[in-house]
Design a protein around this nucleic acid. Structure first.
Lengths: 152, 152
DNA sequence: CTAACTGCAAACGTTTTGCAACTTT
DNA sequence: AAAGTTGCAAAACGTTTGCAGTTAG
């Protein structure tokens, strides 16, 4: 097993999905592999492109692209499902798109407003103190800290 | 001057805009007034509706609606300009829309994922500690803390 | 075999853009 | 009068949905 680029066999991924109550279809395995292998934050569009490497610009006449593997709808549905089942985390930092983060351990983010790049902040030392009690009838879903940066 | 509902005269608003290097047009004054008077977080669509109270559902045949006052494009452009000039703050908490917050003092937010409601967290006691140094060549734009809640 | 999933294309809601007409200064 | 601003409509973007056909258990 390499240092930074983890290797996941299909068997591993199937087991992981099952553990999260997700029926492992081939599309879901593809998407999960992309997310797990690269330790980066990816948008749905990013994943769509990675999973369908050769999809040409819309050519509606063609009955079926031979290497088309996962439709846009499935990418979105699958990512939503993964988030709901706790396999990945949605990061709301860019006003235009959702990022999906395979790192589910509590941690925070730098968001570069110039480039749109998102990077992890090592969770260890960071702490938010002094939060008031939650409003009546609500439970905590999570605390997101986004440190916005500008290129100088 | 009332407690919670501040009164701003057009003269006040003109001065405020000028202080922020924004040329005070009548549309900008309208939008600024909406934002300042209500101390809430509003989306562009919210503001569009407030500023154009009687806009009927699309009736393209009609040459001009007599009470139409601010176009959608102008609302978006103006809010972007206000944010850029530091008159309001963009809040990225809802994955679908940007909220504009007239409160420019440092503070944080509760975001109710069930209802989409955004509420201020009194800034006083809240503090984020242990943040790592910023990456090379970047400066701090702001630190946003969003506490996500779920209705129980 | 059945329930669940997928693909497609069309619909959606938010935000942006191009350009002619109009206000501000 | 010049520069900047506005309105409109259309387009662009990310995302969701409806439904017929397919696949996993």
């Amino acid at each position: 097993m390499l240092m930074n680029e983890l290797k996941y066999s299909d068997v591993d991924i199937r087991a992981l999905l099952k553990r999260h109550d997700i029926k492992p279809t081939s599309q879901r395995i593809d998407i999960a592999r992309v997310l797990l292998q690269r330790q980066t934050h990816l948008s749905a569009e990013d994943i769509y492109k990675i999973v369908n490497p050769d999809k040409p610009g819309a050519s509606p006449g063609r009955p079926r692209s031979p290497k088309q593997r996962v439709s846009k709808a499935t990418v979105y549905n699958t990512l939503g499902l993964f988030a709901e089942k706790g396999l990945v985390r949605e990061v709301i930092a860019d006003p235009n798109k959702i990022f999906y983060d395979p790192n589910t351990a509590p941690h925070h983010h730098f968001y570069d407003v110039t480039t749109g790049a998102l990077t992890d902040i090592d969770a260890g030392a960071v702490e938010v103190i002094g939060l008031p009690p939650l409003p009546e009838g609500t439970s905590l879903e999570g605390v997101d800290v986004v440190v916005r940066l500008r290129q100088t």
